[in-house]
Amino acid sequence: MLFAGIDLGSTSTKAVLMDGEGTPKSTSILPSGKNFRKSAETALNRALEQIGTSMNEVAAIVATGYGRYITGLKSKTISEITCCGRGSHYLLPGARTIIDIGGQDSKAIKIDRTGKVVNFTLNDKCAAGTGRFLERIAVSLELGMDEMAALSVQSETKVPISSTCTIFAETEVISRISNGEPIESIVRGLHHALASRIYTLVVRLNVEQDILACGGGAKNAGLMKELRNLFGDIVLPSSYDPRLVSAIGAALIARERYSGSGDSALG
């Protein structure tokens, strides 16, 4: 018997299959694209293929993420805030503060010792506090995200960049380049600007250790360096891609609800 967690994010769709003991058995991550239903189905099928099984083995599915209501699957929906809290607790039981940096939003979540969400904050309706901020500027600098992060980590200095608006920051970057500022200082300034935006979200929660970072942004070494400068120690999931945390939480909830209620959590 398996339990599935599917996280339909704005950038990528993640699927996790978990066994009855609560151990993840397979995972998949693919770009969300335009068709969320298709992405959800493909992500789930890929995870099933990895362990050579079929949908018949799946007892319950929980969908989360911005596309949670449009999976087309027979699933329960739970917000990614709750799922992220559960997944973080599973991966790091001492976690109390979570920084989730996604493509469309950044979240700070406070959980108790059982993994229950006690408080959360989100960025306002602006890309300047999210992964899109860096993605957009990487494109205009003709750099890959990893390449940009590596330059940022190397840099000893940072050029101040406004974090108010992605578009303004882009213009500012172009003007800094034309002024002859070193590119590594500029990209460090960008990572610092994003980290500062995230900082204001997180401190509102009364930060408690351990801090866990997840979401696509947690894979960015340049951003993590700047966040660690602001918060001190931040833990990354050690055994799983940090983008999978909410999908793991969703699978855990699917398993709990199925077992707890004694009936299928499907539909």
Binding site: T77, S79, E80, I81, T82, V117, F120, L122, K125
Partner: peptide, 22 residues
Amino acid sequence: RFYSDAEVQLRLDAFFEMIGEG
């Protein structure tokens, strides 16, 4: 123009789940 249904839905879902009404 400054209201996003998806964003509000996420916040409300998380709140309802927090108070045991998810």
